[in-house]
Amino acid sequence: MMMEETATGIPSGKLGIWMFLASEVMLFGAFISSYVILRTGSPLFEIPLREMLGIPLATLNTFILITSSVTMVLALDSIQKNNQKGLVGFLAATVVLGFAFLGIKAFEYHHKWAEGITLSSGLFGSFYYTLTGLHALHVIGGILFNLYILRNGMKGIYSNDHHERVEYAGLYWHFVDLVWVILFPILYLL
């Protein structure tokens, strides 16, 4: 498939995904600002004890997600060198790491709920589940996108001069990773 000529020289799909990410920045921006405003402004905003937050597990999860970004970069790098096996292997690793993140997140939810931090127990809980839940939905979306690329990759559709979609999936995945890198300190460490 030949790329169509565009006025800017940038493929339309790539511009489209950047525009989509711009709107996502505004979406998360609005949630995060709401959180910051109420956390600093509301007298009834109670922050749970650090021990209840499970920081070590969340740190591990952060590490997992950052690693998955690295494997994503390696997947793209492989296909740019026309290494089909590398693409499939690193993409599979990215998907597995994504599932690991969700698994740990589910365990964290279960643990926190048992400790009494629930969606309606107070502002912290409300924001915690809303922000991380929205992020988890994005992780699920990213995993589905990656699985689609993985399926095509196993069919050998991509090559060194045709791999735009691998790059788009990567852009999205890095964005999801970046959001977590912001959520982690503001929810757990501050």
Partner: peptide, 24 residues
């Protein structure tokens, strides 16, 4: 592109206030 996601966030918070017992 830049304005609508903010209302979307606001709407989700209002939805949670209505059905999930939050107090945003």
């Amino acid at each position: 592109l830049f304005a609508f996601p903010v209302l979307e966030a606001g709407a989700v918070l209002q939805l949670l206030d209505r059905i999930a017992g939050t107090s945003f």
